[in-house]
Simulated assay, not measured.
Amino acid sequence: MRGRHPRLFIDRVLDHEPGVFLRSMFAVSAEMGALSGHLPERGLTPGVILPGSHTMQAFAQSGVLLYQLSSAPLADDEVTLVGTVKSRFLAPVVPGDQVVLDVRADRLSGHTFTFSAAVTVEGRSVAGFRGAMSRAKVDPAGARPW
């Protein structure tokens, strides 16, 4: 994975088995930029912030890691594209929480990967996700869209 702070949301990979699962975690800090204006009287981690939420982004990043561990490494001219994500937020996540994502490989077929996750804090369900991604070639010298 080519991300780094502040775009890398995963703090640690706890365990994994290629093609089967990846368990990761991130710690929610009161210093997260998204918290400063979201219900300032009660710091809740936003479920959705454009362009995405911290929890959803950690899910996608965990999926990318599992995909790359389960298939051939990405070539220099390839990227992973998350095509769809379905989410369900079940409980608030607050500063001080350690969020654990239990990501499962549902299907790996060619360049397409479907995956899902149960998201917990201290064993309590806080969210669930299902997603799909693929790998695509990019032209590093291609025309910029803007």
Rank of each mutant, 00 (worst) to 15 (best):
M1S: 14
R2G: 15
G3Y: 13
G3I: 07
P6I: 03
P6T: 10
R7E: 08
R7G: 03
L8H: 06
F9E: 04
I10C: 05
D11G: 10
D11C: 02
R12C: 06
R12L: 02
R12F: 03
V13W: 02
L14R: 09
L14P: 04
H16M: 09
H16Q: 13
H16E: 13
H16R: 11
F21M: 02
R23V: 15
S24Q: 07
M25C: 15
F26A: 04
F26D: 07
A27K: 09
A27T: 15
A27R: 14
V28G: 02
S29A: 07
A30K: 12
A30R: 12
E31M: 01
E31W: 00
E31A: 05
M32N: 10
G33F: 03
G33R: 05
L35C: 06
S36T: 07
S36W: 03
G37P: 00
G37V: 00
G37I: 03
L39G: 01
L39A: 12
P40S: 06
P40F: 06
E41Q: 15
L44W: 15
T45A: 13
T45N: 07
T45M: 13
G47P: 04
V48Y: 14
I49F: 10
P51N: 11
G52W: 00
G52M: 11
S53P: 09
S53L: 07
S53Y: 02
H54G: 02
T55C: 15
M56S: 11
Q57K: 13
A58G: 09
A58T: 09
A58S: 13
F59R: 07
F59P: 05
A60Q: 13
A60S: 11
Q61T: 08
Q61R: 04
Q61D: 06
S62C: 05
L66F: 02
L66A: 07
L69K: 13
S70I: 10
S70C: 08
S71T: 15
A72R: 14
P73M: 08
L74G: 08
D77Y: 04
E78L: 02
V79H: 10
V79D: 06
T80I: 10
V82Q: 09
V82L: 15
G83F: 00
T84K: 12
S87K: 11
S87I: 02
F89W: 14
L90E: 11
L90R: 12
V93L: 03
G96R: 08
D97L: 01
D97E: 04
L101Q: 07
R104L: 12
D106V: 14
R107G: 00
R107K: 14
R107C: 03
L108V: 07
S109Y: 10
H111D: 15
H111W: 09
A117R: 04
A118F: 01
V119F: 08
V121G: 05
E122K: 10
A127M: 05
G128S: 10
G128E: 14
F129L: 06
R130C: 00
G131P: 00
S134V: 09
K137F: 00
K137M: 08
V138A: 07
V138H: 09
V138M: 11
D139F: 01
A141V: 09
G142R: 13
G142E: 10
G142I: 04
W146S: 13
W146T: 14
